[in-house]
Design a protein around this nucleic acid. Structure first.
Length: 487
RNA sequence: GGCCCCAUCGUCUAGAGGUCGAGGACACCACCCUCUCAAGGUGGAGACACGGGUUCGAUUCCCGUUGGGGCUACCA
């Protein structure tokens, strides 16, 4: 007994079978929020009891992803803690002892049924039939001594009903006859989920269990186990499942990105991902939906978690990402965008300080236009390049204009710009607006060819700020190149 | 098949018997702002699955139907 006191202790208990799933991230977030809100502790426990599905890199990815989200744990496999170890593969002795204890007390039994028999049983549509349940003790001992493969099964009481409780859904009644004698300890000596989760949640003094609602049908088994051990069960809070964006079927790889790392690689901010996940199944007491995790932790309450399935639709995530990008200080955004620019070859790695300083200067121009960090390269490449490809005439010449006219406009602009000493946005605006007035045309038809000439794009930040940032020499040179391209 | 869960705008949701001729957010449409694109502002369209009850009164409570989802492994 650890006697860690009656404070809230929650755990996130992923299985290292792959990268951290977006649904798992939500569970971890809710766990973290509850711990924060209640001034409790958040633990990380790795449930690696299935050796056949074990993926070596998974554990590192899970921890790295959680850290990226800022969901730091108080106890876990890397940091340790009073209830360790926090990796189930290091606790197999513990599970075995508990399973054997149940056998000794007549609440569980050894089963020697071969896989083929079990397979047949499964096809019949019912669970295990209790074949080994009443095996005489001598026979059992004999088999064991012979080294026969065996599992330990839990003995489900045969009659009656069991009432279990979910925090959000209330009481649920299950008929015991619909439950079969499930396996506690596998023949390889590892525990099944059911045994391990109950033993660990108890030993680690978990007060609230949050997990996906695919576990709802297993609650009776767990309650029965708690009763068999004579333990007090924790509060169960089952989170609504995440459905595919079209609402049909469970979210899976078929429906786009399901691992957190993919979102990170696409250029989503952890702030946005957290905020988005927060809203998938939970709603704040007021209508403020954009909130930091600190703000969320202050008002988080499990009562407000929904029970109906949730379609995982990304529209709001994209919007939230834009919101958080706009809130960032330029230096911060630059630092976060840099890896994307380097990956795309726009900036070198390592990045020289003066280039980074220039990036910081550019950032405010594109900040409110950015939805994903991964868009940074295509939106800013022309700032960093010495020369850009000469824009084709179809881009340069407006719908209502001609090549000749465009050439003349650019030539006039070039002439006016050559005389500008102070190449600042304000001065440039004055000069170019003056030029348009002089030519007797609206600003638009003059500005657009210039924009395309110096950026190669029709959609850019404000023209004058852009020109200032690119600088006089490159601006003039690009306009000259564009004029030549129209000849 | 058996067991379990769920059901408000396209999506996330508010709503806990009269306050609802159903509120917010994203997305969508229009207009405004405007050198383009964004951002921002204003406005618009858009939902209580269906059928029975209970009640003076149901989005809200109960039952059923339908629909969706999950579980039914020596996987979690």
């Amino acid at each position: 007994m650890l006697l860690l006191a009656a404070r809230v202790r929650v755990r996130f208990a992923p299985s290292p079978t792959g990268y951290l799933h977006i649904g798992g991230a939500r569970t971890a977030l809710y766990d973290w929020l509850l711990a924060k809100k209640e001034k409790g502790l958040f633990l990380l426990r790795i449930e690696d009891t299935d050796r056949s599905r074990y993926v070596p890199e998974a554990m590192e990815d899970i921890m790295e992803s959680l850290r990226w989200l800022g969901l730091h744990w108080d106890e876990g496999p890397d940091v340790g803690g009073p209830a360790g170890p926090y990796q189930q593969s290091e606790r197999v002795e513990l599970y075995r002892r508990h399973a054997e204890d149940l056998v000794a007390r007549g609440k569980a039994y050894y089963c020697f049924c071969p896989p083929e028999r079990l397979e047949e049983l499964r096809r019949s549509g019912y669970g295990y039939d209790g074949h080994c349940r009443e095996l005489p003790a001598e026979v059992c001992r004999e088999y064991l001594e012979e080294g026969k493969k065996a599992v330990i099964r839990f003995k489900i009481p045969q009659e009656g009903k069991i009432t279990v409780r979910d925090y959000l859904r209330g009481e649920m009644v299950f008929d015991l006859q619909t439950l079969d004698d499930f396996v506690l300890l596998k023949s390889d000596g590892f525990p099944t989920y059911h045994l391990a989760v109950v033993v660990d949640d108890h030993l680690m003094e978990i007060s609230h269990v949050m997990r996906g609602d695919e576990w709802l049908p297993s609650v009776p088994r767990h309650i029965l186990l708690y009763e068999a051990f004579g333990w007090e069960p924790p509060v169960f809070i089952h989170l609504p499942v995440l459905l595919a964006p079209d609402g049909k079927g469970k979210l899976s790889k078929r429906h786009g990105a399901t691992s957190l790392r993919e979102y990170r690689e696409k250029g989503y901010l952890p702030e946005a991902v957290n905020n988005f996940l927060l809203l998938l199944g939970w709603h704040p007491p007021d209508d403020r939906e954009v909130l930091t995790m600190e703000e969320a932790a202050a008002v988080f309450s499990p009562e407000r978690i929904n029970t109906s399935p949730v379609a995982f639709s990304l529209e709001k995530l994209d919007w939230l990402n834009g919101v958080y990008i706009r809130q960032l200080a330029p230096e911060d955004l630059a630092a976060r965008a840099l890896p994307f620019l380097q990956k795309d070859g726009v900036l070198p790695d390592p990045c020289p300080p003066e280039r980074f300083a220039y990036l910081v200067r550019i950032i405010p121009l594109v900040q409110e236009r950015l939805k994903l960090l991964s868009e940074i390269s295509q939106q800013t490449a022309y700032f960093f390049q010495e020369e850009i490809p000469v824009p084709p005439p179809e881009l340069l010449v407006g719908k209502k204009s001609s090549a000749g006219e465009t050439r003349e406009l650019l030539a006039a602009a070039l002439k006016a710009l050559e005389g500008v000493e102070d190449f600042s946005a304000a001065a440039l605006e004055e000069v170019l607006r003056g030029l348009a007035a002089e030519l007797g045309i609206k600003p638009g038809p003059l500005f657009m060819p210039i924009r395309v000439a110096i950026t190669g794009r029709t959609a850019t930040p404000g023209l004058f700020e852009t020109m200032e940032a690119i600088g006089k020499p490159r601006v003039l040179q690009r306009i000259r190149a564009a004029i030549e391209g129209l000849a």
